[in-house]
């Protein structure tokens, strides 16, 4: 549900002329396709932790930076998979 909600918001923001980029988890990747979202990074993280494990600043930052990089690199709707494993810090 949340992923569809953000899809609505993203489409409205794009229609207002503002570029968006989003991070979706794999479990809801189908929403990205159904709603034709413009720039999306898909992670292999569990629901509730889309950017990475608690305390894993390196992984979280990499995901954020990668999603934002689509603003400069994508000239058409682009979905990028970043399906690195979810590895809790100290696990």
């Amino acid at each position: 549900m949340c992923h569809v909600s953000v899809g609505h918001v993203g489409r409205a923001i794009e229609e207002a002329g503002i570029a968006t980029t989003a991070v979706y988890v794999r479990a809801f990747g189908h929403v990205v396709d159904e709603m034709k979202l413009p720039r999306v990074l898909i992670t292999n993280h569990p629901m509730g932790r889309p950017l990475g494990p608690v305390g894993d600043r390196q992984r979280q930052r990499a995901v954020v930076a990668s999603a934002l990089s689509l603003i400069d690199s994508a000239t058409e709707p682009t979905v990028v998979d970043d399906l690195g494993p979810f590895r809790p810090v100290g696990g």
Partner: peptide
């Protein structure tokens, strides 16, 4: 705002 980073959860 020029760019919005969206994070659905």
């Amino acid at each position: 705002v020029d760019v919005v980073l969206l994070v659905p959860v």
